[in-house]
Simulated scan of single mutants.
Amino acid sequence: MRKPLILCVDDDATILELLCDFIKALGYNTIEARDGLEGLKLARQYLPDVILLDVMMPGLSGFEVCEKLKKDPNTEDIPVVMVTALGEIEDRVKALEVGADDFLTKPVALPELKARLKSLLEVKAHRDHLKRHKEALEREVQKKTKELQKALEALKEAHRKIKELSLEVIFRLSRAAEYRDEHTGEHIQRMAHYSAIVARRLGLNEEVVESILYAAPLHDIGKIGIPDEVLLKPGPLDEREWEIMKKHTEIGAEILKGTNSGFVRLGEIVALYHHERWDGTGYPRGLKGSEIPLAARIVAVADVFDAVTSDRPYRKALSTEEAFKIIEEGIGSHFDPKVAEVFLEAREEILKIKETFKDSETPKLYQLIKSLREKPLKK
């Protein structure tokens, strides 16, 4: 076990020798300094357990040395005993003000010095124990923090992959309904991203924007319940057929209802209300203005724009300029004015999405499915 180390600082060689001899006799190690500057240097170099510090010395006084030691993080916990012939109360107060832990009056009574050293060494040992414990706790906290950060990053990555997978599943399931219609898989990609752009520009928070991105592809999922003779009819629908077609909104909402998933609940709302019109002439409820849920108002604009700019078996696609014109003309009648205006302001972003998600081979697959439906089975 290491012996305690005591630093004695005094410009009087005789007193310094007596102090060190007595301290060694007590079983402690000592180092000596004959002025304040040397004492400060040795204290920082050896980090003793206790410092006995004379006050009146040439150069740096004991008060100055003590003040510097207590301001240094490496030496601030070392107990300092001011040893002085000064007996004025002001000197004792000053010693305490600069951070001294104790003081002794010259000539030093050796039994008192022994008791003071024993007490201060116990204090120092306790401080050192607390310091080591604190450092150990800090290391453990840092270790656990790093582990937590690592686990959090892994969780975020897993959550990101789950979200990507969820969106992929939504797009693919939505395409199952689209294959029964003339739409393409890229249609749902485009209109979903159009919807997200508008939602973000409207100032909705990212969680809501993401929910709309996930919910928008589900808007026409109810078409899976529309009979082929209505859904696939190449010409205009008669009144009875049109009433059947309009049911896809309620069928979609029915398919999606009863879930705890936020974006699926939003998908239910979008499926039911995306054909409502701002002026109240839409379906299935004939809602008007702000009675229509905002997500459905957003999807309505995105859906119409993409529909008119895509080829269909019964007509060619309109140009983007013509499509933007349709949106502009529908402000206040078909579309929420604010939503439509934001859509028009986002023209560059909209066109970038349209370019990113071009129509692929889906129409060929659609034609294959349609031909199989129309081809009679051999008996």
Rank of each mutant, 00 (worst) to 15 (best):
S119L: 10
V93A: 11
K68F: 02
Y46E: 13
K106H: 12
A95K: 02
L121K: 07
L60Q: 10
A100C: 12
E64S: 12
D128T: 01
L42W: 05
L120A: 03
Y46W: 08
L69G: 00
T84D: 03
L53T: 04
G59L: 12
K71L: 03
L42P: 02
E88G: 13
E67Q: 13
P111K: 10
E64G: 05
V108T: 14
E112P: 06
D77A: 09
L121H: 05
L104Q: 06
D101Y: 06
E90M: 07
L117Y: 09
A100V: 04
S119K: 05
P58N: 12
K68R: 10
K106L: 07
L47I: 11
R127C: 00
L52G: 03
A115V: 13
L104N: 08
R127W: 09
D77M: 12
A85T: 11
V81T: 02
K124R: 15
M82N: 01
F103G: 00
R44P: 04
V123R: 12
R116S: 09
E122H: 08
F103T: 08
L52V: 06
A43C: 15
A43D: 06
Q45N: 10
D128F: 07
V80Q: 00
G59T: 10
K124I: 09
V83Y: 01
V108N: 06
R116K: 15
K106C: 11
D77N: 10
E88T: 13
S61A: 07
S119R: 14
M82K: 02
L53M: 15
D128S: 10
